[in-house]
Nucleic acid binder design. Sequence first.
DNA 1: CAGTATCCACAAGGATACTG
DNA 2: CAGTATCCTTGTGGATACTG
Lengths: 118, 118
Amino acid sequence: MSETRSDADCAASWCTDDPWCGLTCAVDVLGHKWHPVVVHRLLARGPLGFGDLADDIGAVTNKVLSETLADLEAAGVVDRTVVDDRPVRVEYSLTDDGEALAPAIEALQDWGERYLDD
Amino acid sequence: MSETRSDADCAASWCTDDPWCGLTCAVDVLGHKWHPVVVHRLLARGPLGFGDLADDIGAVTNKVLSETLADLEAAGVVDRTVVDDRPVRVEYSLTDDGEALAPAIEALQDWGERYLDD
DNA sequence: CAGTATCCACAAGGATACTG
DNA sequence: CAGTATCCTTGTGGATACTG
C-alpha cells in the first residue's frame, strides 16, 4: 500500500554495518521537535485533520506542522488522505509502521515522566 | 548522588502541561546524532574510556563526542570519572537514569530494524 | 480548511589543528 | 590520553503574510 519509502529515508545510509543502525534509524525519524508529538497524538486520538492537530498541539506553526507531516509521510509512518473538497478536508492517520512505534513512544514517555519526577 | 540535573535540562520547560511532556523530554535527551549511540554502547559494553568510545563508534570526531558526553553528563544520564593521571584516563558510565533508558533504546532499535527490513 | 512563500536566527555537527 | 580551539556549512524551527 504505502510503498513510498526507500533506504535513503533512513540513517541506514550512513551506519549500515553498525549494531546500532536500527536505533539511529528510529531516531532519524523521531528526533525532531514535533515529530514524536504528532505520532503521540495520532496514537492517542486516532486520525485527525490538519487543523485538529494544530489545535491539539498548540505551539506549532502551520509551516512546521506541514513540514513535519510531510517528513512522516515520506518516512511511511503517516498516511495522508483527502476526505473532502470545498472546503478541503484532509485526514492524517498512522500506517502500520506508525502504529508499530507505539512501544517506543511509550517507553520514551515513561522514562521522561520518571525523569521529571526527579 | 548525581544531583547535577535541573528542570531546565529538559523539554519540561516548554511543555509542562502537555500530556506528551515526558516524551518530549526524552527526545530532548536522545534526539541528536550521537547521543543515543553513546547510551547504546555504554549499555552494551559497560563503562568505557573516551578513546574506547571513539574507536567503537568510529565516525564521530573528538569535538562532537566530547560535546555529546558533556550533554549526557549534564542531563544526569552519564557519569564521568577520572581513573588515572599521567596519562589521563577517564571512564564514562551510565547513571541510574541512564540505565533506565534501556527499554526505550531497545524499543527504538527493534522498530528501526523491522523498518529497515521493509 | 489546509496549506505555501519568504525571511531569518540559532544550533548542530564536521574538518582541522593544537594542548595539558 | 582526553580533550579544546577555530572556522565553517547546513539543518531546524519560528515569525509573518499570503493562497487555492
